[in-house]
């Protein structure tokens, strides 16, 4: 179980506290979508709870152990991360990139055991990246690269997969495919998948639980709960668009002039 106990996230500089005293918990096998406006603090939250950024206060625990106290290699066995950052690395093949996902388990030389190789091939097959396994990573399209990075995270076989706006480079069918694949992965293997997305409608469709990041706090719950529907309206409504809970869609409130 992943637990956030009175966690404040943010920066020491002028940006200060972004989200204050969060109490959140997730059970194994949960597929959670994190939504919120730009700059609400989704990435900061995800970076903090995966141990990439120090917390300001509180405690993040996974199965009772504090993730900010873990040795880097142990933490890498518990958390895998994919970000929206566009990676370019000349000379690496797709398989090289996916292989790097096994680093938390390999010895100092990074030597891959037979089981590592199997995990790598399986992860590539899951994301459909096996067919360009031997091509240069840099030669791929943005969407294909993102699939490779997700394959790498799958190969890392961590208890919690943290995906920060990974679907931004994918087309609509690609987004649906990747998100439902990750959802099945969570449900079938008991891993926790946390995925932040701007695709609210798709998130509502697929998530077991929604985290709505808004105004320094996080509202959470199953997608069909009235409280959550209300929270979405508070977070996203502007003078031009309004969320319609009945249709689970946004609509324009102002007539076009």
């Amino acid at each position: 179980m992943l637990k956030l106990n009175q966690v404040s996230v943010g920066y020491s500089g002028p940006r200060g506290v972004v989200l204050n005293k969060l109490d959140l918990s997730l059970n194994a096998g949960a597929f959670v979508c994190v939504v919120g406006r730009n700059g609400a603090g989704k990435s900061t939250l995800l970076r903090t709870l995966s141990g990439l950024q120090p917390k300001l206060s509180g405690q993040v625990t996974l199965e009772q152990s504090d993730i900010h106290e873990m040795a880097p290699q142990t933490r890498a066995q518990r958390f895998s991360v994919v970000t929206t950052e566009r990676i370019s690395s000349p000379g690496l093949t797709v398989r090289d990139v996916v292989q790097l996902g096994r680093q938390p388990y390999t010895n100092w030389r990074g030597k891959l055991a037979h089981s590592d190789q199997e995990g790598i091939e399986k992860a590539m097959a899951r994301m459909g990246t096996g067919r360009f396994a031997d091509l240069a990573f840099d030669g791929l399209s943005d969407g294909e690269r993102q699939r490779v990075m997700i394959s790498r995270a799958l190969a890392q076989d961590a208890d919690v997969m943290v995906m920060d706006e990974i679907t931004a480079f994918l087309d609509l069918p690609g987004r649906v495919e990747v998100m439902s694949l990750l959802r099945n992965h969570a449900h079938n293997t008991g891993k926790i998948v946390l995925l932040s997305s701007h695709d609210l409608e798709l998130s509502l469709e697929l998530a077991d639980q929604l985290w709505i990041v808004d105004d320094g706090k996080v509202s959470f719950g199953p997608t069909d709960e009235a409280v959550i529907q209300q929270a979405i309206r508070i977070a996203f409504d502007t003078s031009d668009v309004a969320y319609d809970p009945a249709r689970r869609q946004f609509k324009l409130t102002q007539k076009r002039v």
């Binding site: 995966s50 990439l52 880097p72 290699q73 142990t74 933490r75 890498a76 066995q77 958390f79 895998s80 991360v81 970000t83 950052e85 990676i87 690395s89 000379g91 690496l92 990139v97 790097l100 996902g101 680093q103 938390p104 390999t106 100092w108 030389r109 990074g110 890392q156």
Partner: peptide, 23 residues
């Protein structure tokens, strides 16, 4: 030689290197 494994992870940038266990 001892840093080689971590440097390979660094090929994907600092964030990814850390997420894959590099100090």
């Amino acid at each position: 030689v001892a840093s080689a494994k971590g440097l390979s992870a660094m090929l994907l940038g600092e964030t990814y290197a850390r997420s894959m266990g590099a100090d």
